[in-house]
Amino acid sequence: MRKIIVIFIFMLGTVGYSQENRPTYMAEGDLVKVTYYYENGALKTQGFFKDKKLTGEWARFDKAGNKTQLGYYSNGKKVGKWFVWSKSALKEINYVNNSIASVNSWKSESNVVVKNK
Rank of each mutant, 00 (worst) to 15 (best):
V113W: 03
L54K: 13
T68H: 05
A89Y: 15
N66M: 08
Y73D: 07
Y36I: 04
F48M: 04
S88N: 14
G80V: 00
G13E: 03
T55M: 07
G76K: 08
A59H: 13
V84R: 10
T45R: 03
R2M: 13
V15I: 13
G56S: 06
K63T: 15
S18G: 00
K78N: 04
G76S: 04
R2C: 13
K107I: 11
Y72V: 04
T55Q: 14
A89F: 15
I4Y: 10
S18E: 03
S105A: 13
T24L: 01
R2W: 14
N94H: 11
Y17E: 00
E39I: 02
G29Q: 02
K50P: 03
A27R: 13
M26L: 05
G41H: 09
L70V: 02
R22W: 05
A59S: 14
S105L: 04
G16I: 12
W58D: 06
Y17I: 04
M1D: 09
K87H: 10
N75E: 12
K52P: 01
S88D: 15
I100T: 10
N116R: 07
G56R: 08
A89S: 14
V112D: 05
N116P: 07
A101P: 00
N94G: 02
K77F: 10
M11R: 06
G76Q: 06
R22K: 07
N94Q: 10
V6F: 12
F49Y: 15
Y38Q: 04
K117Y: 13
G80N: 03
G47Y: 03
A27M: 04
K53P: 00
D30E: 00
N98L: 01
W58C: 05
K81I: 11
A101D: 13
G56D: 01
Q46R: 13
S86K: 14
K117G: 15
Y37L: 03
K91W: 05
S18N: 02
A64F: 01
A89I: 11
L70N: 06
T14A: 12
I100Q: 08
A27P: 15
D62L: 06
L43D: 04
T14C: 08
Y95T: 01
E20I: 05
F61G: 06
K44C: 03
K53H: 03
A101N: 12
W58N: 06
G29H: 10
K3I: 06
I100F: 07
Y72C: 01
Y38A: 11
I93K: 09
W85K: 14
L90K: 07
S110Y: 14
V6R: 00
A64M: 11
Q19T: 00
K3A: 08
V103Q: 07
S110W: 11
Y73L: 04
T55C: 02
S110K: 10
F48W: 09
F10W: 02
N116C: 09
F49T: 00
L70D: 02
G47A: 07
